[in-house]
């Protein structure tokens, strides 16, 4: 039963819009496919232009030669050759670091978020809505503000240093707090935490509690129930949030530029400086495409592993 069929009124008042739609063959007007495509068309076209057309432009620009304004456009492979040339090891090192830092971040986020989501799903029964709102609010608080507030904590004159100095533990500021890879991982972990808590919570909440009781009745201890029932059933939430966090953290710019220093600079910083300071859009585009391809490969590899794992479990 489709509402489209129900809504085709028998003998209703004719309206202008109804007359316009009479141009279409009636089997179209009534088909779910046609109506739903019509409804989705504006958003689809908008995203198609803004993402597909623009990513295609990015790829196109990455093959351009760096020319003076007004000069004819020429195409070349030199941007990509530069990425793989011996002098281009800075690009490769930054790319590797831009995969390494998000990997550390993702693992840290999942390890920290899982217990919280678990307690929330299985042990909180009173005021659950309040706890959920408390967890959801930081999700919507400006990412930029959450990152910037760490400047207040870790800075040379920040909370940690001034607090320790006030206690008399240190007599000059600890410099290792800021401008290194560790600081970037800490700040990224904190700012992406809520993006893992909520999906993991949802996948834990969805688990049918009778499975857990069945496992217990069949003699599993609580640790075995967790490892053999709860954890595997929550993995979809873990994987989807891990992929989202990994991909989004790999393209971060704000955190490494505020906290990275030299050892924590990421590929996002390079892309921005190529676009702005060096005014080399073709090279910036090539580096962006390079990052995009690397992320696609990593995500596909993880998805493949997950699929193999599921198959292996199904055959047990």
């Amino acid at each position: 039963m489709t509402s489209a069929k129900v809504m085709a009124r028998p003998g209703g008042r004719p309206t202008r819009l109804a007359r316009l739609s009479d141009i279409l063959p009636p089997q179209w007007r009534r088909s779910d496919a046609f109506i739903s495509l019509l409804l989705m068309a504006p958003a689809f076209l908008f995203i198609a232009v803004m993402l597909f057309a623009s990513v295609s432009t990015l790829v196109l620009v990455s093959f351009r030669e760096l020319t003076d304004p007004g000069a004819p456009v020429a195409y070349t492979l030199s941007n990509y050759l530069a990425l793989f040339s011996p002098e281009g090891d800075i690009y490769r090192a930054l790319l590797l670091r831009s995969l390494w830092i998000p990997l550390l971040t993702t693992v840290a986020v999942i390890l920290v978020a899982y217990p919280f989501a678990y307690i929330l799903a299985f042990h909180v029964h009173r005021y659950k809505a309040v706890w959920l709102i408390l967890v959801t609010i930081p999700f919507w608080i400006s990412y930029f503000l959450r990152v910037a507030s760490w400047k207040v904590i870790l800075g040379e004159n920040g909370v940690v240093n001034s607090f320790l100095a006030w206690l008399g533990v240190i007599d000059h500021p600890l410099e290792f707090l800021l401008y290194n890879m560790g600081a970037v991982v800490i700040v990224l972990t904190h700012s992406w935490l809520v993006f893992a808590i909520l999906p993991i919570y949802v996948s834990l909440e969805k688990i049918d509690r009778s499975f857990l009781e069945a496992a217990k009745d069949l003699g599993d201890g609580s640790m075995q129930v967790f490892l053999r029932v709860t954890l595997p059933l929550s993995l979809p939430g873990v994987f989807s949030s891990a992929i989202l966090i990994f991909v989004r953290a790999a393209g971060d710019y704000v955190t490494p530029s505020l906290f990275g220093g030299i050892s924590g600079t990421m590929i996002g910083n390079l892309i921005v400086s190529l676009f702005t300071a060096e005014d080399n859009a073709p090279m910036a585009a090539a580096v962006s495409v390079f990052l995009m391809l690397a992320l696609v490969i990593v995500v596909c590899a993880v998805a493949l592993l997950y699929w193999l794992w599921k198959k292996w479990r199904a055959n047990l």
Binding site: M40, I47, L51, S54, L244, R248, G251, F275, M292
Partner: peptide
């Protein structure tokens, strides 16, 4: 998937693409 894509794509890629699209194209 298409409608979720803007959420998944890294911001730096979106920014670089849109900048190329608006300025170069």
């Amino acid at each position: 998937g298409i409608f979720m894509l803007p959420l998944i794509l890294p911001t730096i890629i979106k920014g670089a693409s849109l900048l190329s699209f608006f300025r170069q194209y």
